[in-house]
């Protein structure tokens, strides 16, 4: 029991450490930046592309992780009823899952060696590492199975992804190289703050962790609509109904005018 507690405390301590802003290490204070770091959702928004770039030592590798704020997600579980019909068989809650989770890997690192590497596991990179952090409720659920389904669901929405061979390098001077990574932000990504973390690693050692903030925010028409819908739901509903009613009747009148039947 005591051992188990120690394990939890150690994990929690590590999590806290990772959440704290990491001071740039002295030797390789790499300049890593995000372009753009603010995405405005306007009326014709259809997702965006964000580029992470910077310089790292020539013999190092960069792994990039985008995570959203964590939340509890309630989902319906589907299963067989009476052996034949597939239906909802109950609810299941995934506690502390990030709203979005995207991993971008260089050519040298694949998904399979990501889950085997103790360093990357301890840093919490990848779906395997994420699974260890997530708590299921009810607790007696088959975690491996349900988490796999959860990843499928989130991947379909475009909010969870793992991209291999997604970081390109270009040789530079002074035994350094520059890297770029184009992240695709889907339109389904919710508003909010996201952390884009670049892990610089060499020979199984972590050299540097750099975190940039990405902000996604509604502006213009979408912002106005959301404000009205959420803060003045009744007025919004009445307006939406009235406009629909007028549009329907107007079409009817126009048709009568031009129809000639």
């Amino acid at each position: 029991m005591f051992k188990r507690h120690m394990h939890i405390i150690a994990t929690a301590a590590l999590a806290v450490l990772l959440l704290l802003p990491v001071p740039p290490s002295k030797a390789q204070a790499a300049d890593i930046h995000l372009e753009p770091n603010l995405i405005n959702i306007n009326a014709t928004y259809n997702g965006a592309e964000v580029t992470v770039s910077g310089d790292i030592p020539a013999d190092a590798e960069a792994v990039i992780q985008l995570t959203g704020q964590t939340q509890d997600t309630h989902l319906l579980k589907k299963g067989r009823v009476f052996g034949i019909l597939w239906m909802n068989t109950g609810t299941i809650t995934f506690e502390n899952v990030p709203k979005a989770y995207m991993i971008y890997l260089p050519a040298a690192i694949t998904e399979s060696n990501l889950s085997q590497d103790p360093l990357r596991q301890s840093l919490g990179i990848g779906f395997e590492a994420l699974k260890n952090k997530v708590v299921l409720s009810p607790a007696n659920e088959d975690k491996d199975f349900q988490f796999k389904e959860f990843i499928k669901l989130k991947s379909k929405e475009g909010l969870y992804s793992l991209s291999e061979n997604a970081i390109s390098y270009k040789d530079g001077q002074n035994q350094m190289k520059s890297f770029t990574c184009a992240m695709t932000i889907p339109a389904s990504m919710p508003q909010g703050l996201f952390s884009v973390t670049t892990f610089v690693m060499k020979n199984g050692q972590l050299m540097e962790v750099n975190t940039n903030q990405l902000k996604i925010k509604e502006t213009g028409l979408p912002a106005m609509m959301s404000a009205l819908a959420f803060d003045h739901g009744l007025i919004y509903g009445i307006l939406a109904t009235l406009i629909a009613l007028i549009a329907g009747l107007l079409t009817g009148i126009i048709f009568k005018g031009g129809g000639g039947h």
Binding site: M225, A229, F230, G233, L234, Y236, G237, I238, L239, A240, T241, I243, A244, A247, G248, T251, G252, F255, G259
Partner: peptide, 29 residues
């Protein structure tokens, strides 16, 4: 239903409804 859903659950997307209704009012005629 629209007024109830808009006021209690905030699930009415008017932009979506607007694009749909431009098509459906014509279709209904």
């Amino acid at each position: 239903v629209t007024i109830m859903q808009a006021s209690s659950n905030h699930t009415v997307d008017f932009i979506l409804a607007l694009i749909l209704l431009l098509g459906s009012t014509l279709g209904a005629q």
